[in-house]
Simulated scan of single mutants.
Amino acid sequence: TQAAEVRESISLTGQFAAVDEVLTGRENLVLVARLRHLKEPGAIADDLLRRFSLAEAGTRRVATYSGGMRRRLDIAMSLIGNPQVIFLDEPTTGLDPEARIEVWQAVKELAKGGTTVLLTTQYLDEAEHLADRLAILHEGRIIVNGTLDELKQLLPPAKIEYVEKQPSLEDVFLTLVGAKTDKEQR
């Protein structure tokens, strides 16, 4: 019954970054702020560029951005107007491990700031890492939902086994490029 209010309180970031590559990052943000008829679109753009660690790249054309930078810009664009709820549809699909961690950090900051984030992902480690509550869909239906601990209780008790853990290929990649892993950033 209050469709306009609902549209104002939600935002969507699709599976693929919906940014204009001809424009700069700042111009993309200013454009969306103007389309939403907000006051001071330049100030809004500058604030979001800072929040998403894109201030230095803000004057560059988006075509020069990495995949992670494009996704962060896309998420930033979705936050214009301060929606209470944001839907993120597979935000890390196709990203390299470093960019994936950048997007994870952005999602964590949104949630910490009070935004409700509804995340769809096929990466179960991502859901396990980011979600407070999980819903598992199968054949288009939610078959179970709850916290991670609640879902784990659906399984038999764990057996204790000792396994030598070798570094993963992601660990090797992140070490070689000098990036901090998500665990190191906590």
Score class of each variant (00 low, 15 high):
Thr120Ala: 13
Thr120Arg: 08
Thr120Val: 06
Thr120Glu: 12
Thr120Asn: 13
Thr120Pro: 01
Thr121Ser: 13
Thr121Asn: 07
Gln122Asn: 03
Gln122Lys: 08
Tyr123Thr: 09
Leu124Phe: 10
Leu124Asp: 05
Leu124Arg: 05
Leu124Val: 12
Leu124Thr: 02
Leu124Cys: 10
Asp125Gln: 15
Asp125Ala: 12
Asp125Leu: 09
Asp125Trp: 03
Glu126Pro: 07
Glu126Trp: 03
Ala127Ser: 03
Ala127Arg: 06
Ala127Trp: 02
Glu128Phe: 03
Glu128Tyr: 09
Glu128Met: 07
Glu128Ser: 06
Glu128Gln: 12
Glu128Gly: 07
His129Trp: 09
His129Asn: 14
His129Lys: 14
His129Thr: 14
Leu130Trp: 02
Leu130Glu: 10
Ala131Arg: 02
Ala131Gln: 00
Ala131Gly: 03
Ala131Glu: 01
Ala131Leu: 00
Ala131Pro: 02
Asp132Cys: 05
Asp132Ala: 07
Asp132Lys: 04
Asp132Gln: 08
Arg133Val: 09
Arg133Lys: 11
Arg133Met: 10
Arg133Glu: 14
Arg133His: 09
Arg133Ile: 09
Leu134Phe: 08
Leu134Ala: 08
Leu134Lys: 06
Leu134Glu: 11
Leu134Tyr: 01
Leu134Ser: 02
Ala135Pro: 08
Ala135Ser: 05
Ala135Lys: 03
Ala135Gly: 13
Ala135Val: 02
Ile136Pro: 02
Ile136Leu: 14
Ile136Gly: 08
Ile136Met: 12
Ile136Val: 12
Ile136Cys: 02
Leu137Pro: 01
Leu137Glu: 03
Leu137Ser: 08
Leu137Cys: 14
His138Asn: 15
His138Ala: 15
His138Ile: 10
His138Thr: 12
His138Tyr: 14
His138Asp: 15
Glu139Ala: 13
Glu139Asp: 15
Gly140Gln: 07
Gly140Ile: 11
Gly140Phe: 08
Gly140Thr: 12
Arg141Leu: 15
Arg141Asp: 15
Arg141Tyr: 10
Ile142Trp: 05
Ile142Leu: 15
Ile142Lys: 11
Ile142Thr: 11
Ile143Val: 14
Val144Ile: 00
Asn145Gln: 15
Asn145Asp: 13
Asn145Ile: 09
Asn145Met: 11
Gly146Phe: 05
Gly146Ala: 05
Gly146Cys: 02
Gly146Val: 09
Thr147Trp: 04
Thr147Pro: 11
Thr147Gly: 11
Thr147Lys: 09
Leu148Val: 11
Leu148Glu: 14
Asp149Tyr: 05
Asp149His: 08
Asp149Cys: 04
Glu150Trp: 01
Glu150Thr: 04
Glu150Gly: 02
Glu150Ala: 11
Leu151Phe: 03
Leu151Glu: 06
Leu151Met: 11
Leu151Asp: 02
Lys152Arg: 10
Lys152Cys: 07
Lys152Pro: 00
Lys152Leu: 15
Lys152Ile: 10
Gln153Ser: 15
Gln153Thr: 11
Leu154Arg: 10
Leu155Met: 10
Leu155Gly: 03
Pro156Met: 03
Pro156Thr: 00
Pro156Glu: 12
